[in-house]
Every structure is written in C-alpha cells, then in structure tokens.
C-alpha cells in the first residue's frame, strides 16, 4: 500500500507492506538507524519517536499509521532550523553526561522532549515518572534526570527547533 507522511520535516511517499513496523521502515527501508530496537515487548523505549508531536514507541506502530502524519526521529532534531547545532535537550544530555553506551539515548531524548513540551518546568519526580517507559542500563538514570530538567529549562528559555 502507498503511504504519505512527513518525515523529519520532509514529505515522503512510499509503498509499504502493511505488516511493516515503523522501526523496520525507518531502519531497513529509510536507512535511519538512530531509532533502536532494544526489546520485543514494548518496554524499553529505545525506539521512541514523535508522531504528530506525541512520544510513541515505533516498534509498536504499523507503517500505515503514519498516513498523513508528521514523524520526527532522533535524526530530525535540530538546535535551530537548518543548523548543525544540537537540540537543547541533546545538548543537555551531553553537558550532564546523560548517556554512556548510547543505545537507549535516542529514545530517551525523544521521550524527554515530549515531556518538556507537555510542561515548562519539571520536578525530579515528574521526570522520573515521565521516563518510566525508557530503560537505561548504564547510567543509573541520575544524570539523565538532571539532563532532562536542564534540557526542559533550556527549551522553554530559548526556542526549540523541532
């Protein structure tokens, strides 16, 4: 079947098998390998992307669901439109050492941005709860939590590019 959607701000039209997961579409067909697959039970969150601005697990999303929607992946984040700068949330992760092996990071950053969009100032408890669908094995979460709080403040202090 044919689907049309916006991928990282660019229009895309593709032929897909309906039985295609969005993770597979991104990784195998569109060569966007930043969206990761860490489990098969929709628990880990390494695959989180934004669908019309909402954080969703792309491993639990069929390609036809993209029809007419806007999809943003980790590769589509920018500090400012057209720039090579990191998005403020990415920069906050870097500044706070909120990543180690990097595997959970794309999903973690996408979830964090969605949290920040929902609320301008996040408490530690809100961030911890907001990340309940993202598992990290390396960091013990402490620096991730600090990064998300700082990234949220930065996003609301200055304009974000997404």
């Amino acid at each position: 079947m044919q689907i049309s959607f916006t991928l990282n701000a660019k229009p895309v039209t593709l032929d897909v098998e309906p039985a295609t997961l969005v993770t597979e579409l991104l990784r195998e067909h569109l060569n966007l390998t930043g969206t990761h697959i860490g489990c098969d039970t929709s628990q880990c969150g390494a695959c989180v992307v934004h669908l019309d601005g909402l954080a969703v697990k792309s491993c639990t999303l069929l390609a036809p669901a993209l029809q007419g929607k806007s999809l943003v992946t980790i590769e589509g984040l920018q500090g400012a439109p057209g720039s090579n700068q990191l998005h403020p949330m990415q920069e906050a992760f870097r500044q706070h050492h909120g990543l180690q092996c990097g595997f959970c990071t794309p999903g973690m950053v996408m979830s964090a941005i969605a949290l920040a969009h929902a609320k301008a100032a996040l408490t530690e408890a809100e961030v911890r709860r907001g990340l309940e669908g993202n598992i990290c094995r390396c960091t013990g979460y402490q620096n991730i939590v600090l990064a998300v709080m700082a990234g949220t403040a930065a996003m609301h202090g200055a304009g974000s590019g997404e």
Partner: peptide
C-alpha cells in the same frame, strides 16, 4: 563520543 550517539549516528 556523544555527538554521534545523540544525533542517531552511532
């Protein structure tokens, strides 16, 4: 190493 991991280029 962070630049590539944060931008999905690992």
């Amino acid at each position: 190493e962070d630049q590539r991991f944060l931008t999905g280029r690992g």
